[in-house]
């Protein structure tokens, strides 16, 4: 008996077995959380920043109330993104496609780089059959935007159709994972000890509904070759201790023009927008001559 126990390294003692009842309960809880999430749209309408301010009570949440007011001076609009673990990636995808809807030249370049990504992923050893389907599906979508088959309203309808939107989103997860794998030597040291980059990509990046951490964020930004700014509601959350963070790093504020700006509130990202230049004359800022 003793020998047996030694041979079968972990003994059966102390193993937590999950009963079927527990599994059912877990499933029910998961379902409830999911239903709650699905009550809000994947991608909301663009709303005035006053809606953000209205979320906070001056008495009970003075810090957030104040910060929301500060943001509302700089940013005119906010687009809420569903909090389902995909919010960072979804916000980037929506923000980028919004830019491409108005910038044909950039759109054409983006299609070319998306096609390159298909080849890069295959070269990296991603399962050809399944990965290329995500790539092709995304490329078909974006080509329809180029060809005017998908107009702006179609794009937002698609972004709000759970199954299609999540299929499109998976392409961004794959290129995030691909970018990390291409730069494994650079990023592997950041992982918890004992975890390989391949494992990390499989469980944290390629798996749907997993929140993006800093590694996932920087990799997607670099994979897409975009510039983003993250505004922090909570000053303590910013890696640099400031009120916002520019990515990729190494740009000072003066020269940095982000393509996309996100608002970070604990555990969640939404898209925020500056007013178009023509509108900035509205606030009483005498220096805008």
């Amino acid at each position: 008996m003793v020998n047996d126990a030694l041979e079968n390294q972990p003994t059966t003692a102390g193993i937590v077995t999950t009963t079927e009842d527990e599994l059912i309960l877990q499933d029910q809880q998961m379902k409830r959380i999911e239903d709650e999430q699905k009550a809000s749209p994947l991608v909301g309408e663009k709303m005035p920043c006053a809606t953000l301010v209205a979320l906070y009570d001056q008495e009970t949440a003075p810090a957030f109330f104040e910060k929301a007011n500060e943001l509302a001076k700089v940013y005119s609009h906010i687009r809420f993104i569903r909090g389902d673990g995909n919010c960072f990636i979804r916000a980037i995808q929506v923000g980028l496609v919004e830019i491409l809807l108005n910038d044909k030249e950039r759109l054409v370049k983006f299609i070319a780089s998306s096609k390159e990504w298909t080849e890069r992923l295959v070269k990296l050893g991603f399962p050809d059959w399944t990965c290329t389907d995500f790539c092709e599906f995304f490329i078909e979508f974006i080509e329809k935007v180029r060809d005017g088959v998908h107009q702006r309203e179609d794009v937002f309808r698609i972004f709000n159709d759970d199954n299609t939107a999540n299929y499109l989103l998976m392409f961004f997860r794959l290129i995030t994972s691909g970018y990390l794998k291409e730069h494994a030597a650079e990023y592997e040291p950041f992982l918890d000890e004992g975890m390989s980059l391949a494992q990390y990509c499989e469980t944290e990046i390629e798996a749907m509904w997993k929140e993006s951490d800093h590694l996932g964020i920087i990799a997607l930004v670099r994979a897409l070759n975009i510039r983003i700014r993250i505004e922090y509601m909570d000053r303590n959350a910013a890696p640099n201790g400031g009120t916002h963070h520019n990515l990729p790093d190494g740009h000072d504020n003066a020269t940095f023009t982000p393509d996309i700006t996100l608002l970070y509130r604990p555990g969640h990202y939404d898209l925020i927008y500056k007013a178009p230049l023509a509108e900035t004359s509205k606030p009483a800022l005498p220096t805008v001559a």
């Binding site: 991603f126 399962p127 059959w129 399944t130 990965c131 995500f134 998976m170 997860r173 794959l174 499989e202 469980t203 390629e206 798996a207 749907m208």
Partner: peptide, 11 residues
């Protein structure tokens, strides 16, 4: 918990 959308029926 270790499902990946890159798996297919064959996998």
């Amino acid at each position: 918990n270790r499902w990946s959308p890159t798996y297919d029926v064959a996998a």
